[in-house]
Design a binder for these strands. Structure first.
Lengths: 213, 213, 213, 213
DNA sequence: CATGAATGAGGTTTCATTCAT
DNA sequence: TATGAATGAAACCTCATTCAT
């Protein structure tokens, strides 16, 4: 998209070929992405220096700038990976069989599950959007919106056939729910008492209960 | 609390005495706090330099360091102001008269209302906690927790007398709700269609509906 | 002129107060300007690092950036000093008494004299204009043009009263002459046989001879 | 001449064989030379990166380093091409028939003409000599000097037979004249009012007039 | 109370060049 | 011939903070 380094190799989208850790097995871009994700979540984007990232990934600064145009670009790659994954999963639930209430419940629970499984991504997502360039913020927000709309459509389907209350805009319900989901990164601890599945059930329950006519 | 400059004059708690803008009418600490709040919300803590803050506040760097020990200290002051205000309001609703469901509904709607009235504070709150020193992060989290607990107690009260469902931990309900509230800073726009009061009503509705046995 | 650091102290215009060497006697900006001039002439703008400049001036990098917004700004300051000095001298000759041919000869000889006395400035002037920001290039060119116009007016005065030939545009004569003057930096060596005064006389002679009707 | 890669194929001397543009028609070295010339003139040697050159030429970095030992080598090739061309032309005029004054006038006008026809080369020539390695600077200067000497000989010839004044060293006249010529790159614009031929005539006129006894 | 010059460590990025393929 | 990933040194600059006045 007009990027001055668009000729550089693809990366980040398909990490299956060579693993996804920061060990020397994975590809250089993958290792960088992993290290960046961990560090950005751990101490924040601005508190993480490029030096720290490349050291954690075991590559040189030059190598990093060969694959990523900037530190910002690295952050953006994290966002892209998360967004793609979330959209993929939602699509699966949305197009599944079964009554809408069940599909919504499943999708709602799954997004929680996925979120706690990728807490680092979630933390970064919430905290560092404003560190992206305005253009990229917009790109992320746009994709975000598409995701929300997909979710909203499920709710509206239920409203139309009368299984969900209609005196509340589906929009509000969606933002309310995802607010809660994003917030997970602020309090959920994997080593706590609650499993991700449990939280997912509770959240889905609250959502469905809230939508009861 | 172990602060090296505890002898410095109080500030930030009471902005009523001399106005609260950044104009030359308000006191120096107030002007700094206002400028910092605006800039931190606008471009993030990390992207805001001390120079920018003092310029926006119309004071010199020396003056700033006279009132605030550090940039971090300035951020902390923002947090303190927000926390104190929120707690004050919640306390009022919690100790009011009337059935618990009504009091919860009112408090829940009010926190939304207050949040959209102070969106800048909310944005900073969500985004920049990790920029505080670990000690201060803990201080903020502790105060936060007290706030949540106060809210949780209201829900538990309702659960005990049977007006709220009990098969969901009150904790989960609280975090779910505040997740949504904090998220407001990410999408609510004062110049949009929805008033803060309307969103508050919807949110409170969803909360109460979700708690219906 | 809209410069983000316009509040910084004046510098470079008046170096008489505290000497003009790079020794510790002169002011910090003066020392920086001296060191920069020497180094830029010696090895070129791009080949000179900020580190080298501040080391030669005996100040820290931070101090330099306190007085000069950028390396570019330092170069611009060199240009400003040269331009101001040249204009001041030309004005003196232009407004002196005597026949126009004599005044032109004196001014023409003097500009050579001054140029060889400040060869470093001249070398930089010729070589590094393109390293300035476009805006500043324009500023320099504009001042340059004013200087040339002042010189051209003297020639036109002579043409009008018939002491200079009129079949050659005064413009051409001026640019031709200053081309030769600027070129001095490329070949004149202070330790060579020719004194600056001698070269000045020859150049002025050629100019006047060329203008003979 | 001591070049570590002297075994590489000849280039740059004869651009007629395969065109001289940067299009895919010309040979790789020619395309590189064209692109480099344009970019060096446009933004300066230092501001032009190897990446930009190879992109403009439509080749890869590896290809460039196959034909040119370094970026410096590319710049040197530009100098060589210019020098060879200038010397060739001067030789033609110097060895032509006719009175010395006419031959000098023709040569003087021609060098102006050629210069404005190759303004990019001229700009680079003036501006970037100091970016060459010291050895190559010397090589260029030496060739330069040979050129000047050839020109000076013409003047001395005229002085000996009494058609030129002798009270000014021919050296001075030469440097004066070429200073003016080199300066053309600083002010002459092909799209301006003056043709190169017109400027050449004026310059030659001034030169000859200046030499009148 | 307030100033503003000075610090100095650390930040991101660029770049010419090499080398295994 | 040609590729393009990788290097690593060095570049410019920012910034929170201090301190003498």
């Amino acid at each position: 998209m007009g990027n001055p380094r668009d000729e550089r190799p693809e990366h980040g989208q398909d990490r299956s070929s060579s693993g996804s850790g920061e060990g020397s097995a994975a590809s250089v871009p993958d290792r960088l992405l992993s290290a960046a994700t961990r560090l950005f979540a751990e101490r924040g984007y601005e508190r993480t220096s490029v030096r720290e990232i490349v050291e954690a990934a075991g590559v040189t600064k030059g190598a990093m700038y060969h694959y990523f145009a900037s530190k910002d670009d690295l952050l953006f790659a994290v966002y892209q990976r998360v967004l793609a994954m979330q959209m993929r999963r939602l699509e699966e639930f949305a197009t599944a069989e079964g009554p809408i209430a069940e599909r919504l419940r499943a999708a709602a629970a799954d997004v929680v599950h996925t979120t706690v499984d990728n807490l680092e991504d979630t933390v970064i997502f919430q905290r560092s959007l404003h560190m992206l360039s305005p253009e990229r913020q917009n790109e992320v927000r746009k994709e975000r919106r598409r995701y929300h709309e997909r979710f909203r459509e499920m709710i509206e389907d239920g409203q139309q056939i009368g299984v969900f209350r209609t005196d509340i805009p589906a929009d509000i319900v969606v933002t309310q729910y995802f607010g809660a989901v994003h917030h997970l990164g602020m309090w959920y601890r994997p080593d706590g008492e609650l499993t991700g599945a449990a939280v997912g059930d509770y959240f889905a329950d609250l959502l469905l209960n809230g939508l009861r006519p």
